[in-house]
């Protein structure tokens, strides 16, 4: 077998597996509580039932986060790429909104670190 065929045989499963995982990630269920994190620390827990606007500052930059109708998104950002704004509303539990320049991550709260209030309430 020629050498380049061996490499193609390695690449093909990577592509297929990634495509499958992508589809899974897009459809993972969300939740009612979102968390805003920076550098691995939770900055805020947000109950999505309450409509609000939150501004999170970072150095000279900031992100304006909007909660509306049980959904959450980044409404405005002072970063050059605006990727987090373009991502729109947070939909999937496996696919967080990330603002890399501002080190900001927004995702649905995972069951493993939900506190007692969330369980009893």
């Amino acid at each position: 077998m020629k050498r380049h065929w061996i490499l193609l045989v390695i690449c093909a499963p990577v592509l297929v597996l990634s495509a499958a995982l992508s589809i899974w990630a897009l459809n993972a269920p969300g939740g009612n509580v979102a968390v805003i994190e920076r550098d691995g620390e939770v900055l805020k827990r947000i109950d999505l039932a309450i409509d609000q606007e939150i501004t999170i500052e970072y150095k000279d930059s900031c992100n304006v986060i909007e909660v509306s109708g049980g959904k959450i998104r980044v409404k405005e950002a002072l970063c050059p790429d605006q990727t987090c704004v373009k991502m729109g509303w947070l939909k999937s539990g496996a696919f967080p909104i990330v603002c890399l320049p501002n080190h900001l991550v927004i995702e649905f709260e995972r069951p493993d670190y939900a506190d007692a209030d969330a369980v009893s309430g």
Binding site: V14, S18, A19, S22, D39, G40, P96, V98, H103, V105
Partner: peptide, 23 residues
Amino acid sequence: AAIAVTKTMAIISYLPFLLVSGC
């Protein structure tokens, strides 16, 4: 690098998307 800088493992869920587009 992104995981190391932001210390957020959740970013790994971007990898499949990047790999499809990257290939």
